[in-house]
Each structure stands twice: as structure tokens, then as C-alpha cells.
Design a protein around this nucleic acid. Sequence first.
DNA 1: CGGTCTATTGCAATCCGTTGCAATAGCGAC
DNA 2: GTCGCTATTGCAACGGATTGCAATAGACCG
Lengths: 150, 150
Amino acid sequence: MPDAVSPFDSLAEVRAALRARGLRWTPQRRTVIEVLQASRGHVTGAELVERCRRRDPATIPSTVYRTLDVLEEVGMVRHGHAPDGREEFHVGAEPEHGHLHCAGCGSSWEVGSDEAAAVLAAFEASHGFEVDLGHLTVTGRCRACRAAAS
Amino acid sequence: MPDAVSPFDSLAEVRAALRARGLRWTPQRRTVIEVLQASRGHVTGAELVERCRRRDPATIPSTVYRTLDVLEEVGMVRHGHAPDGREEFHVGAEPEHGHLHCAGCGSSWEVGSDEAAAVLAAFEASHGFEVDLGHLTVTGRCRACRAAAS
DNA sequence: CGGTCTATTGCAATCCGTTGCAATAGCGAC
DNA sequence: GTCGCTATTGCAACGGATTGCAATAGACCG
């Protein structure tokens, strides 16, 4: 699965994207962006705050969260909610995907867009609703836990 | 819409369900249960706390949340997460259903088990995963918002 | 370079929810 | 009735995230 190169590989690109919207380039944002670029996959908000603080101990949580909002608007990250309701950010050029989360053992699986196609089609058909796959977390029981619960 | 009679219509029934599990009947639980019986559909945790406090100003939030956990184990309520991650409880004899939530306009729709059948089947087939429909919240864009975003 | 406009920051307060722990009180037994 | 076991409560502290507001500082203009 060769992915398109992310349009946010370099700081300059992000900066340009922000400027194009009349948004500003600040040291704090730079920190958050650097942290994001060093991350892959899923990260919780709190984790990002922690990593930023490591880079710059003066980091303020609210600034990080606000920056993440902005970056989501620009398309650099997307967020979803873990099964416990916490925020979870998807970073980078990962293909869009949803999550399956087992309430029994806590493990989780990714759901590719191919697998999810049926789901998207179903809601599209019944409600004209366009599902945001990246924001989708499905809870339930995995095969192993179902068997164990016999 | 005649629903099946809930097994939790009277206090006595809940009490019996609790006892059967070695759980106790306390004034605080009684308050929570009465509040639940006076509620329909979706309620957030905070709302329930507030209603309990109205009935008994001495109500402690943690007690309410813990009671809700217990009642979920017994099957009197089920909880899900609103799109913003807040807890949302489904009360009463409502048929199980999921939610579709539009990120554009904020409205939401219920998804009956018939409609969701395709979804359940898809994950069952691919991962042997049993979806918890009552816990399912799907975000995306509704027909109207998609049109408006043209 | 200096001025202006306003996006952004820092801070403090607040909200929703959870957790650890010692004290309390259901409830079944005698 | 009262004893004992242990589920439950109250409380206080904590964690993640959001918000209002005054002060700060980017970025564009002349």
C-alpha cells in the first residue's frame, strides 16, 4: 500500500498551510508539530502534552489542545475517541481506518477502508450519511473473548 | 410502539436483581434508580448526577457513577459515548440501537438493529467480532451538510 | 523600521469522571 | 436482637480536557 506523501513532511509546509488560512506560526505550535512528526499511529492528547513538555517544559496543556484543533482543521491530524472516551489522535500519512475494540480483553484491531466499505455503503444508502471512518470506534467482543465467555 | 416490559419497572425488581448477585440495596442506589425510572432515552452522566442531587442534595457524584456501573452490570442501563467523548446512558426498555452523529450540524439519528445488521455481519465475518450496537456512535456528515458543503 | 490589527498564549477556574482509602452500614446467620 | 463479613459510601485528590479573559506577540502595511 504505497501512500501518497504527506503534505506535512516539513515544518515549512505546515507553516505555509497555516499562513494560507491567516493563522500564525509560533514557537509553541512549532513544538507541537515537531512532536507530531516524531510520532506515528495513535497518540492520546495527554501523551502529546507530555512529549511537548519534554521538549519544552514551559508547555501549557491548553495551548497543545488548541494547536491540535487547528492542525486538525488544516488536516495534519485527525482525532477519534478511545473506548473510554479519551481523545486519540491519528498522525501522519496512515491510510484512514477505524477501530474495533474488545470490551473483554482490551485489545483492538484496525479496520481498513476495504473492510469498512460495507459499513460505509450501508449508512450511505439508508441515511445519505457519509461516515467518518477515522473517527469510528466500534466496541464489542472479540472471537477469543466470546469463546471464553461460553 | 409497545415495547416489551422491562424487567426493571419496579424498585423491587431491581432490588432482587442486585441481591441475586450479592449486591446491596442502599438509599443512594434507590435514588439513582428512581431517577433512572423517571428518565427516557439518552442521558449524560452529569445530567443524572444533577437529577439525583435534586432529589437528594447530599448526593455524591462518585456514588452515582459507581451505581451506574453496577446497574449496567445488571442490565438496567447501557452506556455509550457521545461524539465529544462524554458518557451517555441509555435507559429503559428501548430496543438496542446505535447512533449516527453529524459533525456538521450536530444532529443525530438512531440506527435500529435491522439497519445495522449489515455492519454487525461485516465485522463478524472479518474478525469474528461481535459488535455492541448500543455502544456504537458513528460520526460523519449527514445528507444536508454534505449538500451544503458542496 | 515602527505601527496596527488580531491571532495566540498563559493562567486560573471549571467540568466530567475516576480512584484510593478509611469509615459506615447492608444483610444473612446465629 | 445482635454479630460479623464485606459491599458501599463519603471524601479528597487527581487526570484529562475545555473555556474566558487579559496580556502578548506574529505578520502585514506603509
